[in-house]
């Protein structure tokens, strides 16, 4: 086993171990951090970002831990050896390298982060409008035609624009399958956008502590085929006695 700290063989072995460890760790992380199935365009964008993060985490974790474990084994004090370690106080080139390289990572991720943010929050034409009102401890949804519902019904393949108000304290609108999240603030309108891609039943879960029954502030969300949605809407409109014509315009 090579003994000198600057022996190149140390670094070759460590580099090989880091490569193996990075791959293994990445697969472990992907399995150990199972994302709920995505149901929106934004979920795809955000999941990609998360996968990249996990890959970088796998690499950096391996980088530090492999070097650390390697040093613990190779540079441990041997029985009967009373000498001190090799005397070196630092290395300016190395310090600059490990300042600048992370800085490059930061710039790349900042750039990537800015782009994903712009993508998941951008407003589009012909958005499906709905209002969400949060209160301790329930949700109410109001459609532009005046229909009011206790559960959220939305059509598939639409960019949904939810504008939100709170009646009392802070709440947060979160459908895990859609990924995005936004707080509701009393006295202020906040908004959130997501594009539905999968028919199914989900739940909007309040994600900001709002008091005693915060845990139970969950309400079903139904993403429907356009026809099913239209049918639901016309039934609701009839039952609540409002004009269906407006709803057709709103869902365009």
């Amino acid at each position: 086993m090579p003994k000198s700290a600057s022996d190149k063989r140390h670094f070759i072995i460590a580099a090989a171990l880091i490569a193996v460890s990075t791959v293994a760790l990445y697969f472990l992380l992907e399995r150990g951090m199972p994302l709920p199935p995505g149901a929106s365009t934004e979920a795809g964008i955000i999941d990609n970002l998360i996968h990249w993060h996990l890959a970088v985490i796998a690499f950096l974790f391996s980088l530090v831990v492999v070097f650390m474990l390697y040093a613990l084994v190779v540079f441990r004090k041997r029985e009967g050896d009373d000498s001190e370690g090799e005397h070196f106080e630092g290395n300016t080139v190395l310090e600059i390298v490990w300042t600048v390289v992370p800085l490059i990572f930061v710039v790349v991720f900042a750039f990537y982060g800015i782009n994903t943010l712009a993508e998941v929050t951008k407003a589009g034409p012909n958005e499906f409008e709905v209002e969400a009102i949060g209160q301790q401890w329930s949700w109410t949804f109001q459609y532009p035609n005046g229909v009011v519902a206790a559960e959220l019904y939305i059509p598939i393949n639409q960019r949904i624009h939810v504008s939100m108000q709170s009646k009392d304290v802070l709440h947060s609108f979160w459908i895990p399958e859609m990924r995005v999240k936004q707080d509701l603030v009393p006295g202020q309108n906040t908004e959130i956008r997501f594009t539905t891609t999968k028919v199914g039943d989900y739940k909007v879960r309040c994600a900001e502590l709002c008091g005693r029954s915060h845990y139970s502030m969950e309400t079903p969300v139904h993403v429907l085929e356009q026809a099913d949605y239209d049918q639901w809407m016309s039934e609701q409109a009839a039952a609540q006695n409002v004009a269906v014509a407006q709803s057709a315009g709103a869902t365009e």
Binding site: E42, I50, H53, F109, K181
Partner: peptide, 15 residues
């Protein structure tokens, strides 16, 4: 950093 980039934080914050 995964919490530091806004888009992934929108998913992970308050979890």
């Amino acid at each position: 950093p995964i919490l530091g980039t806004v888009a992934s934080d929108m998913f992970l914050t308050d979890t």
